[in-house]
Nucleic acid binder design. Sequence first.
RNA 1: GGCGCUAUCGUCUAACGGUUAGGACAGAGCCCUCUCAAGGCUUAAAUAGGGGUUCGAUUCCCCUUAGCGCUACCA
Length: 468
Amino acid sequence: MLRVRFAPSPTGYLHIGSARTFIFNWLYARHNGGTVVLRLDDTDVERNTQVSVDSIFDGLNWLDLGWDEFYRQSDRLALHAAAAETIRQKGLAYRDFTPARAEDEVASEPAGGWLFNPGMRELSAEESDRRAAAGEPFVLRFRVPREEKHVVAFADGVFGKQTKLAKDIEDFALLRSNGMPTYHLASCADDVDLKITQIIRGQDHLTNTFKHVLIFEALGGDIPKFAHLPLLIAPDGAKLSKRKHGPVVSVTTYRDAGFLPHAYVNFLCLLGWSPKNDREQMTRQELVDAFGFEGINRSNAVVNFSEESPIDAKALWLNGQHLRSMPLEELLPLIRSSLPPQDDEERFRLAVDAVRQRFTSLHDFATRGKGYFSDDFEIDPVALDKLNQPQAREILRELGERLEAQPEFSEAICEAELRKLAEERGVKPGLLINASRAALSGQAVGPSAFLVFACVGRQRVIERLKKV
RNA sequence: GGCGCUAUCGUCUAACGGUUAGGACAGAGCCCUCUCAAGGCUUAAAUAGGGGUUCGAUUCCCCUUAGCGCUACCA
C-alpha cells in the first residue's frame, strides 16, 4: 500500500512552495491509489504557534484537495524517545555533553567544517551513563561511520542515484538537551511508524536524506523511497521569503486575490513539472492521470512577479481560462456570497456566464460586474463618456418607453427596437449600443450590448433607461 | 571553506545523439467587432563558456563559471 505524507512545520503561513509539495504528494497518491498523511512537524516548541497552525489549515482547506490521515508530532514524543533509545542501545548514537555553540561561533567555523566534538564519541558507556544520571545535559548524536570508503546511497525518484561519503557527514543531533527530538529523528521515526512508503519533499532536503538513510538503517525495517522537488525561487534567484518578497509567498494571498483554488493548483503544478504534451490548462482528474516523477524537472523554478505586477501573469491567465471554462454550477457558489441575493436565478446564470468571459478574478463579479447583480452600482468614467454623447440620454429614455410598451422582452426585440429608433433619429446604432451598455451595466466594456439587455432583465432595463 | 544539486527564449517549459530548437505566458503587429475581452494569424526572443567522445551534441563525459541547497541542540 502506497503512503505519502506532507509534513509542514507550523512556524509561519502556508508557503506556496509547501503548497506545491503538498499538491505533488496528493497527485502522486491519487494517481497510484495511495494514502495521503498530513503530519504537523511541531517539535520545535520555541517557534511553533497556533496562529501558524490555523493559517496552514486555512491554506490547505482552500486548496480543497483534502487528506486521509492526520497526526501531530508533539503527540508522538514517546515514540521518538523510544527510537532514540533504540539507536543509542545499538551503539549507533552517543551522548555529547558539550555545551551548545553560539550562533557567531558556528558562523566562524574553521575551514573544513565540523564533524563532531572532540572526546565525546569515545566516552565510555560507564562515564556517559554516570554523567547522564548526574543530570548533566547532553545532546544525543548519531555515530556516523568514519571508515574512509563508507558510502551512503539512495535512489531518488527525480534526481536519480545519489551517493555521499559517510566521512563528509557530521555527527548530527537526534535529541536536544531539553529531551525533544530533532527534525531528523522525529521525521524518520514517524515515517517508519506511519509506514510511509514514498517521501516527496523539497530539494532542500536532498542532502539531509543521507542522514535519514542512516537513521532508517539504524531503526531497521524498510526504507521509504525518495523523490525531491526543485525549489520555487524569486526572480532575483533567492529563495522566496516573506521578509524579502512579501505576500507573494503565502497561498492565502492568491485566495484573497480571487483565485479559483483549482486554477492555482494547476498553476503550481506547472512550476517544476510538465505533462510534456504542451497541455497547460488541466482539470484535477487530468492532473492526477498525467502526474509522475518523469515529468518533474531538476532545476529550480522562478515565480515571476514584480512590484508592478505582484502576481505571476501566467497564474492570472490560467485563472481566467478556468473561470470561463469551468462548469457554471461549480462557479456560482464561489461568487454568490460576495453578491446581494438574486431574484431571478435564470437571469443570474445568464449574466454570470456572459460576464465571466472577460473576467480573470472572482472579485470581478462584485466590482466590474456589479451592475449585473445589483441596483447599487457606479457608472465608470469611460462609460459616462459614452452616455454623454449628444442625444444619447434622451434617445435611451425613449427606448425605455418603447420597450415598456412591448408585450414581450428578448435580446432580439431589444435589438430591433434600438436599431429602429436609431434610424428614426438619424444616429448610428453604435452610439446607442455603447450608451445603453453604459447605462445598463455601468461599464464601457462588456458582453455584446443586446446580451447585456437580457442579462439585466426587462424590469431593470426599463427602469435604468427611463431614468438615464 | 567542505559536500551535494542544477544550468534551453524575460518567465514556465518541450525536444530516442539527427528538428528551420517546439508550445505557453508576458511584449509587438494584424484580423474579427457595437465596446472590452476571448479567439485566429504574424512577429521578436534561448541551448552559460571552453574542451572532449561522435559522421553528427541542447542531449553523453570533463573543466570553468554562475545559481541554489546542506554544513544548528531550525525544519
